[in-house]
Structure formats: structure tokens, C-alpha cells
Design a binder for these strands. Structure first.
Lengths: 232, 232
DNA sequence: GGTGGGGTTTGTGTATACACAAGGTGCGGC
DNA sequence: GCCGCACCTTGTGTATACACAAACCCCACC
């Protein structure tokens, strides 16, 4: 479809999610068109999509700003996430291709070893784990096979990835999360929709509280002098 | 914010939801800009928003078309709707302003009389009922107080209102639906989140099957003479 | 010295012009 | 008569120019 407007959208979206564009930053059309080397027309289209995503919002009368992130936002986002992921897990349990989830089962069983072999805080193993979770999400999406539900989930995931940059899970939490994911996958493999739903609820409950815990310090500390948190 | 682009969006959205623009209709920018009396720029913005809403989609390579409606779509939409409305009902039960829902309770109790006094198929009483349901939705939204969840619900409702034009509920179903809504409101008034959730599930199950029942005849009759010609 | 008003500046909203790509059509050749 | 190629038409993607509205600043007046 579009080319310049698409890449502008992708780039701005990545910059917001990656905290290069911090919450509250004004998104001026002329400035962006200069910086991105394209005209205002595709910039406008990109900004419209960001507003639709909830990553930008109109600022009192004139101009757009990057939306804020607060603990309240996180709680609200998780309320939506819970509704969507519980439903997705339940439907995936009914419709799954068993072999796909058996593979995930095996991989998730190896996560403790993966996280233990090197220093658990090391980036490579952490990255590998997140990549595994991402493949789990993809597998659920494919099993659910519902464009509306998957679309809504993707919207939530966009916001989640922005939050993830704030709240660095500690190694213990990563291990716990892997166990919780394994429980969900087990339920999906068994075709037990109700169990998959409840295991998802448990996981999200634990995940939310872990996130809020690490968020409290980050958010309140970040508020005064927002420069980016040590990414290591 | 915008003016021409906003009204263009509203108008096109209304025309799609109201079936003046039928599924498969090509949305050409120049044609629309002529018809709406504005230039292509605001038309493009309006079309982008329609795509984001899922009311229009790119057509193989070039151009946009109004998205199709099928029984499969309806089932998928209800899977998302179920997830969202169950969560909304549960949260509303926890956070509601009792007096608001007591008022709705009283109004819903009078629905049988409302639908009986005139011919039940008459438009005015039907309209009054739909307006009451709409106020119920608003009350839930206000009680939930979660922008993410409410936003997702509004997206679903857009698609639902397009479907409603297809499936005319019969008077008996309207009465039944009113009873089901009353059960949900009762649960919310009682502050029983679990009951509100389950009553919502029951309502949506019945609503889906009623919709599918009246859809079968409408859709299959409409299918053969769809205006979109095989492009390839 | 403070406040109000007007001008200026800046930025968005809209229109239009230009570039390019895809598809259709017509003409010519086989 | 059929097939293929080229041209033309049509429509989208992008750039730019113009209009208007709001906010800011400065000056004058109170």
C-alpha cells in the first residue's frame, strides 16, 4: 500500500515503544516531516494511526503528544488483557493443533536450564525467553483463528511492550512466568478450555503484580528527569 | 480537531453501517471527494479510520472496499464481544453507582408492557427498547471506567450495529432479551461480579443464536447477487 | 507597573498539482 | 481470428501551496 507513510508509522511507533519518544513529547507535523525526510501528508497518516493505536492523543486544542504511562494505565490495560487472553486461551484449547503446543511444552520445560546456565540476568537468555513467549503468542493467535480477537490482542501487546521497557523482570519472576506459561500450554494440549482460561487468569494476576511492583520505583523515579532507564 | 475529515468519516461510517454502502463496494478517493464535496486529503484520512475500524479493507493491490459480512464474521465477532462484555459486566458489578442501575432495573421491568401496548413489531416501541439498551451500555461503560476496555467495546458495537440491520429481531426475542438484560442489571445492582459475568454469557449465547437464525435467510439470499465481481 | 488588545507567528486543515504504477483497451502482427 | 505489445487511462502516493485559527508577545494605555 503506502510506502513512506508506512515506514514513518513503523518508525514512530518503534520510537514511542522504545522510549526514544517519551510520554508527553509533542508530535509536530512539520518537525517530523523534516526529521523523517518526507512531506507532511504521509506524516499525518502515520500520526492518525498512532492516535488509533492509543500511542498518541490530541493535546488540548492543538497538536498531538505521546500518551502517558501510569500505574493506573497499567491496571486498566491488564483488565482488557485479561478478558482477551482468557478468551484466547480457552478458544485455543478447543482448536489447537496439538503438535504445535507439544513443541512449546518441551521448550518451556527447558527454560529453567536456559536461565540457569548463564547468569540469569544476562541478556541473551532473557532475549531467548521473550522470543519463546512471542512464539507462544503466535501459536495461540494461529489456533484461535479469529481476526477480531487477534487484532484486539495485538493492540494490547503494543502497549505492553512499551511498559516492558519500564519494568525489568527479575530472574526469579522470569522462572515463575515460565512455569505459569507451561501450565497454560499443558491445559491447551489437554484441550481443557476452562483450565487454560483459569491458568491464564493466574498468570496475568501474578504478572500484573510483578509489573506494578517494579513499576512503582521506576515510574516515580523516572518522573522528574525522564532520560532513559539503563538498558545496560 | 478536523472538520471536513471528521464529518466525512462520520458520514461514510454511517453509510456503511446503514447499508447504503454495501459490502464489496469500492471506495475510490476521487469519487468520494466529488460526492462529499471535499478534496482527497480529508477523504484519505476518513478512509484510514474506516480501515482501522475494520469497516473497509485494502482490495488486492489497489483501492479499498467495504468489508464483507458473513455468518463466520458474526461468530468471530461474538467471541470477542463475549470476552469484553463479560469482563465489563463483572467490573461494573464491582464499581457501579447503584442508583443508576436501579433506574435501569425499573425501566427494564416495564419493557414487556411497552412492547405489548402497541403492536410489538411497531417501530416506535422497538426504537425505545434499543435506546434503553444503549443507555444500559453507557451505564456499564461509565461504571467500568476503563478507556481501553470501553474503546474495544465501541469497536465491537460498530460492527454489531451493521449486523443489526440484517437480522431483525422478532418481538418474542426482544422480550427475551429484555429479561436477560434485567438479569444482568440485577446482578450488577447486587454487586455480584460472577453472576453478572455469567448472565452476560447467557445473554450473548442466546443473542448469537437468534442473530444467526435470522441471518441465515438474509445472508444466503444476499450472497449470490453481491456486486463485487471476481477481480482475478 | 499591570493589564488588555492587536499584530505576528506558528501550526494545523484543506486543496491541488505532480509522479508513478497498474490495469485495460485497442491496434497490429502472426 | 487470436494473441501480444504498447499506449492510454485511471487511481493512488506524495509534495507543496494556501487558508484559517490559536497562542504568544509586544506595545500602549490605564
Amino acid at each position: 500500500m503506502a510506502r513512506a507513510s508506512d515506514s514513518a508509522y513503523e518508525r514512530l511507533r518503534a520510537e514511542i515503544v522504545g522510549w526514544q519518544l517519551e510520554p508527553g513529547t509533542v508530535l509536530a507535523e512539520v518537525e517530523l516531516s523534516n526529521r523523517l525526510g518526507i512531506s507532511r501528508t504521509p506524516v499525518r497518516e502515520a500520526l492518525a494511526r498512532l492516535v488509533a493505536d492509543g500511542l498518541a492523543e490530541p493535546q488540548g486544542g492543538r497538536g498531538l503528544v505521546v500518551t502517558q504511562v501510569s500505574a493506573e494505565n497499567v491496571v486498566e490495560l491488564f483488565e482488557l488483557r485479561q478478558a482477551l487472553e482468557q478468551q484466547a486461551a480457552a478458544l485455543a484449547a478447543e482448536r489447537r493443533d496439538v503438535s504445535v503446543f507439544v513443541r512449546l511444552q518441551n521448550e518451556l520445560r527447558e527454560v529453567p536450564a536456559l536461565l540457569a546456565e548463564a547468569d540469569a540476568a544476562a541478556d541473551p537468555s532473557r532475549r531467548a525467553y521473550y522470543e519463546l513467549v512471542s512464539r507462544f503468542d503466535d501459536a495461540v493467535d494461529a489456533a484461535v483463528k479469529n481476526p477480531y480477537l487477534v487484532g484486539a490482542l495485538n493492540g494490547v501487546r503494543t502497549h505492553l511492550s512499551r511498559i516492558r521497557r519500564l519494568s525489568h523482570d527479575n530472574p526469579a519472576r522470569l522462572l515463575e512466568a515460565a512455569r505459569e506459561h507451561l501450565m497454560i500450554v499443558d491445559a491447551i494440549v489437554d484441550g481443557d478450555a476452562r483450565l487454560a482460561e483459569d491458568a491464564t487468569r493466574v498468570h496475568l494476576y501474578r504478572s500484573l503484580h510483578s509489573t506494578l511492583g517494579s513499576l512503582d520505583t521506576t515510574l516515580t523515579r523516572a518522573a522528574p528527569e525522564q532520560r532513559d532507564v539503563p538498558t545496560r
